[in-house]
Design a protein around this nucleic acid. Structure first.
Lengths: 126, 126
DNA sequence: GTATAAACTAAGCCTTGGCTAAATTGTAAA
DNA sequence: TTTACAATTTAGCCAAGGCTTAGTTTATAC
């Protein structure tokens, strides 16, 4: 797989787990699976890989926690995601399309592009 | 894999094959592999799938052709790619970063977002 | 306190997209 | 024309990410 692809799933998962913890107080497999649109066994296998790679920690049958590494990746990802989402709306894309597109695009925008996005958001605001 | 992902490799390959045919007069496995940054057996396997799915045609040991379906996918993809590439440069992203980012982003922009990009390009031009 | 339902894990299979090593075919030069 | 090299294919391996079916564990409700 090409570079960006390798981390895409990881970023999506840690971002989601972080979100679930914020909203629900904890992240359960069943919710991760349903929000990712995959079956529980599939989510379970991916989470095992994330744990193996040091992004999350959890005991069998218990809820999921982010490691410091996982948390910082989640924060980075969400920031990118939010900027792209806001940018698209700023240039006139509907909320729904902006939501869909930003989810895919966030993994491909470089810091340079992100900076250009932020600048334009600022310009439009003034 | 999530929706966009499934067609990403296909789009990249047909776009590249189309390009090779334009520039070199024909598309050979060896060039496809080197431009995609994978080994020849890997490219060969992917091309077999593309042929199975009706995007390309070729005889053993011969060069590769796009089917009408492959050609129209290539045209669509390149158009998207070019718009994203031009858009990023228009908002101040360097050519190099625009090239890298547009390659990943092209698979995730909806028609609505593409329209917004085109509009902004026009605005900046005037 | 036990039965039942929900959550999770285990096992096994599939496809895609990587790789290496080895065999085959095509082509060009001696 | 033969030989050697380049291009391609074949075979076999691996990891990720998807599925289903079946078995465990946990939690809930009675």
């Amino acid at each position: 797989m090409r570079e960006a692809h390798k981390t895409e799933a990881t970023e999506d998962y840690v971002e989601l787990i972080d979100d679930l913890i914020c909203v629900n107080g904890e992240a359960r497999l069943v919710d991760v699976a349903s929000r990712m649109g995959v079956t529980q066994p599939t989510a379970s296998k991916t989470l095992a890989r994330l744990q193996r790679d040091g992004y999350i920690s959890s005991e069998p049958y218990r809820s999921i926690f982010l490691t410091p590494m996982g948390k910082s990746l989640a924060d980075e990802s969400r920031l990118k995601h939010e900027i792209v989402f806001e940018f698209l709306q700023t240039i006139g894309v509907s909320k729904e399309a902006a939501k869909r597109d930003s989810e895919g695009m966030e993994h491909h925008v470089s810091d340079e592009t992100l900076k250009a996005f932020k600048k334009l958001i600022r310009q439009y605001k003034s």
